[in-house]
Design a protein around this nucleic acid. Sequence first.
DNA 1: TCAAAAGTGTTATCCTTACACCCATGT
DNA 2: ACATGGGTGTAAGGATAACACTTTTGA
Lengths: 324, 324
Amino acid sequence: MRAQIESGIEIGLNAAIVGVRDGQPHILVTREGAHWDALPYGPFTPLDHRTLDIGLRSWVRQQTGFELGYVEQLYTFGDRGRHARRGDTGPHIVSVGYLALIAEDPAAAMGGASFARWYGYLPWEDWRDGKPGMLSDEIEPRLQRWAVQPGQDEPRVPALTRSERLRICFAMQGADWDEEKVLERYELLYEAGLAAEAKRDGHEAVEFWDALPQLGRPMQFDHRRVLATAMSRLRGKLKYRPVIFELLPDAFTLFELQKIVEAISGHHLHKQNFRRLVENTGLVEPTGDVSTQTGGRPAKLFRFRRDALLERGSTGVRMKAGRV
Amino acid sequence: MRAQIESGIEIGLNAAIVGVRDGQPHILVTREGAHWDALPYGPFTPLDHRTLDIGLRSWVRQQTGFELGYVEQLYTFGDRGRHARRGDTGPHIVSVGYLALIAEDPAAAMGGASFARWYGYLPWEDWRDGKPGMLSDEIEPRLQRWAVQPGQDEPRVPALTRSERLRICFAMQGADWDEEKVLERYELLYEAGLAAEAKRDGHEAVEFWDALPQLGRPMQFDHRRVLATAMSRLRGKLKYRPVIFELLPDAFTLFELQKIVEAISGHHLHKQNFRRLVENTGLVEPTGDVSTQTGGRPAKLFRFRRDALLERGSTGVRMKAGRV
DNA sequence: TCAAAAGTGTTATCCTTACACCCATGT
DNA sequence: ACATGGGTGTAAGGATAACACTTTTGA
């Protein structure tokens, strides 16, 4: 009887919980022994929790001790195990990914939870020190070989060739890097057999697997996909909604703000213009205090004007100029 | 045994399928006898369909005969019936909403499916002829009375008062109308007891219900919520992705394009500037032909440059200037 | 003194907005 | 003739990007 119930569908709630530590974005992960890292996770039980959000907050509270504030649904994936097969035991799991932002110092995570740098999982996304070496050295050559192999089951509607997809996602052939295409890049790497999860999920042998270096830390289930979705969404949303302040303490200097925006978006910004753009948005106001722990001249401290959320055109942080 | 299985969770896939007819946006609905309208709908069965998208396309094909092209996941709602209660019979349904865009003439829908104007369901969203009368006459007075009543279970984190929410969502107290807040507006109307679905779902008696006029056609389940989400997303996405062309025939005049953008976004645009902005994006190219069925001077026909999808900064249709 | 970061000023350029105005067709 | 929509030109204003430069602290 129990087996009957479990042959149905289960909803998995997963949260990519982002916080800042030492100026770097981290996510909350659980590491069960020698297993791969996982996001905080739990099934949705509608009798206990009226909505998905409520269920998610409850799981995170139980597993990590954190009471989430800003939470945003990302995407629902139907193929967590990548393939459902007749004869599978246990329920099929559909996973709903969430992004959550926390401002507290994440050091005090409970239980088996700890904070890990998010670029540890997707290292090719960090362009703050220029183009990551692993792109030229490891990823691009393998992708180029993959691109000229015959595609198998790829009947997409706006039919793009593998080569076009490389151009768009990985800025090859002179195209430029779109920092928001985090998910597309991860999915492409998975499809090309360059993500360890693809091998784990039982995909066909790929020529590279004998000598594949670790391209970012892999994660349990489809959690790296959820993380990639979270990074995409956050990088995009920064530009048109004032979400960055969910990650900051009450008072901060403009330089701290800039460093965090850079850390999230993965590239450098032009200092003088950034300051001016931020001050012109009306999103921040001076507290009147200064911080002397700057390494240089003391800096004015600012706070987020929460009223800005009520105002029209509450845009987010503009930042076109990326210069190294 | 069967009952055991059904006491679990089921995933419902729902599609808001948008097409243009006579220059107006329509959605595909099914009308079963005297019941309320519904979107094409079906459960997700992982053994038959590997992903949610594939399942959705299959259901739509079966129910309407349409082979979908552009499809985008919107949101997953955990409370379709709004409340799960211990002792409920049947499975709890979690619903995944989708937006799909079709260019074909939607006249030839199969089976019980037909096309209906989308503003029939959310009439307060159409500002092309100025502010809709029903806002001032019906909605605002009722919302204002609701705003001064004591709130019950509304413990949100960035605590907004009812009055602030009215200001933001419905442009009251001199704020201006944000055309993208379609979902927030519908949710607020539901919460305030002004949507027929709220009564159907068994909410507490609201003072207005005795004399509540029909504020937009209601729909089955949470389908009006899915439609509102679709409208929000499409209005937003227009501005930064070239999705509008999914709704247009291969060749079109700039005036036709403008009329459809106006119909989707719900307000008027400045003609001369719209044309220039569109031509400057590089999204369209002249076909060389002209259309003489304009009512005036013949107009050049344009086509969408599909190459634009591959190019960086493929932005969408800019359109700040809204003038009546 | 130097390094590091805070902060100010200025300019060229581009984009948007808002006008004004002319063109070609059907009725 | 005139209504309707097509189509072009241009000037004002604002925002951005790229400079150069000064100020204030700690080591």
